[in-house]
């Protein structure tokens, strides 16, 4: 039985070293390490904690379209030592799609950090050059559009477009942008909505942009509004949230640190290199922004028949 005793001693030792780190800031990233959001979060975190004057530890809590990690933040009500680096989907789509243990009101909103508008794109070899032509040809034979998963922004943007225009297209979800791009290269799908990063990396042809104004560097790509389709603005954004119930003082400290971080040269250099656009919103603006997005997305899900 001595074997068992040794095992228990070893296990107890591990337990002690684990509990020593109590007062650190718990920095939750609701994605697996190494993903696109994770990399932005990992560049954000050291500057943020420097500004705040604390030691922080990144914790990747992945799964179920980032809702597991987000729920981890939401359920820590009143805990001033936890924040989450959140993607758009977990805050503004998933709560309307699924029964989750959190909602938009479960958080103290700190800031929006980055935001990139989405483009509608087709393969470079495609002979389609405009949205009108795309819609025209889809009448003869409906197209297939890909996405990085059901209920993601690429899915929602396209679903909204099929509702608001005469485009005939059906959704085929993949497990991430990479596999979807593989399918586009093999002509399994014909259309994809995603950000500039994807557009540049895979050398695709943009037909229109889901934004209010034309995007710098893509001046010849029209917006949907110009094409006569209203309310088709979708962007991929990220932001920082804390659980609700923390003191106003702490919330202000978080907001100041976030602002200083996105304005720092280090973060700007990183953003330039990795193709994300810094687009800061303060606590109040961010809160209103999320509330509006939740409303818009809810309507899209309903119109597209994805929820009742």
């Amino acid at each position: 039985m001595s074997a068992l005793r040794h095992s228990l001693v070893a296990a107890a030792l591990v337990g002690i070293t684990q509990s020593a780190a109590a007062d650190n800031l718990d920095f939750v990233v609701p994605f697996a390490a190494g993903g696109a959001t994770d990399i932005v979060a990992r560049s954000f975190e050291p500057i943020f904690s420097e500004q705040l004057g604390v030691t922080s530890v990144i914790r990747n809590v992945a799964g179920a379209s980032a809702t597991v990690g987000t729920a981890e933040v939401a359920k820590s009500e009143g805990n001033p030592n936890i924040i989450g680096y959140e993607p758009a989907g977990a805050l503004s789509i998933q709560p309307s799609l699924k029964d989750l243990p959190y909602g938009p009101e479960s958080f103290t909103y700190v800031c929006r950090t980055v935001s990139n508008p989405m483009f509608l794109m087709v393969s470079k070899d495609s002979d389609i050059d405009s949205i009108d032509q795309l819609i025209e040809e889809s009448r003869e034979y409906p197209f297939l559009y890909g996405s990085s998963g059901p209920g993601t922004l690429p899915h929602l943007a396209m679903a909204a477009l099929t509702v608001k225009s005469d485009l005939q297209a059906q959704h085929v979800p993949y497990s991430g942008s990479g596999p979807a791009m593989n399918a586009l290269a093999g002509n399994e799908i014909q259309i994809m909505a995603d950000t500039e990063t994807i557009l540049e990396n895979y050398d695709l042809k943009p037909l229109a942009v889901f934004a209010e104004q034309r995007v710098e560097g893509y001046e010849d790509v029209p917006t949907f509004k110009e094409l006569g389709m209203q309310d088709l603005e979708f962007s991929v954004w990220q932001g920082v949230v804390a659980p609700k119930g923390i003191s106003q003082e702490r919330a202000d400290a978080f907001a100041d640190a976030c602002r200083a971080t996105v304005e720092s040269d280090r973060f700007k250099t990183f953003a330039d290199k990795s193709g994300v656009s810094i687009d800061y919103l303060g606590p109040e603006d961010f809160k209103d922004f999320v509330a509006r997005r939740v409303e818009v997305n809810q309507q899209v899900l309903k119109d597209a028949g994805l929820t009742e």
Partner: peptide
Amino acid sequence: MGAMVIHGITPGVR
């Protein structure tokens, strides 16, 4: 690929 992006190399067709 993530590590490449951090170092300013964009993986892709080119």
